[in-house]
Simulated assay, not measured.
Amino acid sequence: MKKHLPGIALSLFIAALATLVANWIPGDIIGASVLAIFIGIVVRLIYYNETLFNEGVQFTSKRVLKFAIVLLGASLNFSIIMQVGGRTVIVLIFTLFTAFFGGYLLGKAFNVNWKLSNMIAAGTAICGGSAIAAMAPVIEAEDGDVSYAISSTFLFDMLMIVVYPLIGRLLLLNDTFFGYWAGTSINDTSSVVAASFAFSEAAGEIATMVKLTRTLAIIPTVLVFSSIYFRRKLKQPNKRKEKVDLVSIFPWFIVLFVLMAVLNTFGLFTPTLVEFLRMISRFSMVAALAAIGLKTDLKSFSRTGWKPFIHSMLLSSLVAVVSYVVVALIIG
């Protein structure tokens, strides 16, 4: 505990600070998760004693992150798919395919590493930072890549909060159309809420419901990439010679995550308990991302370069266009 406590305490302090600042900023413009990463990076630049903090920061960035993801499952409910209808699911299938297939092609074109490219695709396809954070432990992503992926998707979201309502009014979109479009194409939940409610109250309610449905895609996405990463490890020359232990590398926390979602779907959690678990999950994830920020060296950003950022902007723009077209064809 003596080795872990300083790093854990520092991560929790940054998480609390980021949460306070995020609540102080009006309109949910910037989430606590993104703030925590940036504060962590700044703290590392100013003063960071590796001997004192590393053990606890490592624990928070790995173990606490998995704990947060497990609790996140309690806020998911499969029955919401029935509420939004089959047409929404069709739109989501198109946008998910666009994000992951388009992300694969752009990753190849810009020579972006496999892990970073797919985290950007997951953040674009599903729900920004939460999806990236959920995927990171499964594919054993580098902390610098996690920070980069969340930062790049966040910057697009900030732009869309302003641009989406303007485009909606210029094109004379109705509330239903705009709600489906924003809910299926803007990355982070807070950004969806900010942009859609800026357009209208009705559009905001529709967009929020659609976005909650989209968040459910975390489950199959993480399971699929867990399988893909396992197969990729088997193909490594050093792994062929040694026996790979499936039990040790299987992401068991995802099983608990799915179990929590199933229990909530069957109504075994009260609304009060769900809200409490969601609150704990959010703060734990903010603390974990603060720890990731503390572990991120800005030199790694400069080494990564601008190509992943361009990759993220192009992919998010592509998803926005495809979403608009599919909503026009399916929803009308």
Rank of each mutant, 00 (worst) to 15 (best):
L170N: 11
T124Y: 10
A182R: 06
M160I: 04
L116N: 01
F156H: 06
S152L: 09
M160V: 03
N113C: 00
I93L: 14
T153A: 15
N118V: 07
E140R: 03
L166Y: 01
F154S: 04
A182N: 01
T184V: 13
L96Y: 11
S152D: 02
L170F: 13
I150A: 10
L159M: 14
D175T: 00
T189L: 12
I126R: 03
A141P: 12
I120P: 01
F177S: 11
M135F: 08
F78N: 03
I81N: 01
I161Y: 05
A182H: 02
V84E: 10
R169V: 08
T88M: 04
Y104E: 09
A141F: 07
T98Y: 10
F178L: 13
V138E: 02
E140L: 06
L105K: 12
A125Q: 07
F154A: 10
Y164A: 09
W114A: 04
Q83D: 13
N113I: 08
V112H: 05
S152R: 06
G183K: 04
I80M: 13
I132G: 07
T176H: 08
L166W: 01
V163I: 15
M119C: 06
R87Y: 13
A136F: 10
A136V: 00
D188R: 14
F78D: 02
N111S: 15
L105N: 07
F100M: 05
I186A: 10
D145F: 09
G107F: 02
N113R: 14
S147D: 02
S190R: 07
P165A: 03
V112P: 08
G103D: 12
A121Y: 12
L171C: 05
A99R: 00
G144C: 12
I132Y: 02
L155S: 12
A131G: 02
G144S: 03
K108S: 07
S191Q: 15
G144T: 11
K115G: 05
L116D: 06
S147M: 03
L171F: 13
T176W: 06
M119F: 00
D145Q: 13
R87A: 10
T176K: 15
G123D: 06
T189W: 06
L96H: 08
I132W: 03
A149L: 02
L166D: 05
G128E: 13
V163T: 12
G107S: 02
W181T: 05
N113Q: 08
P137K: 01
D188W: 09
S152W: 00
G86V: 00
S190W: 04
A131Y: 00
F97N: 06
I81F: 13
M135I: 00
G102W: 05
G179N: 10
G129N: 09
E140V: 08
I161M: 14
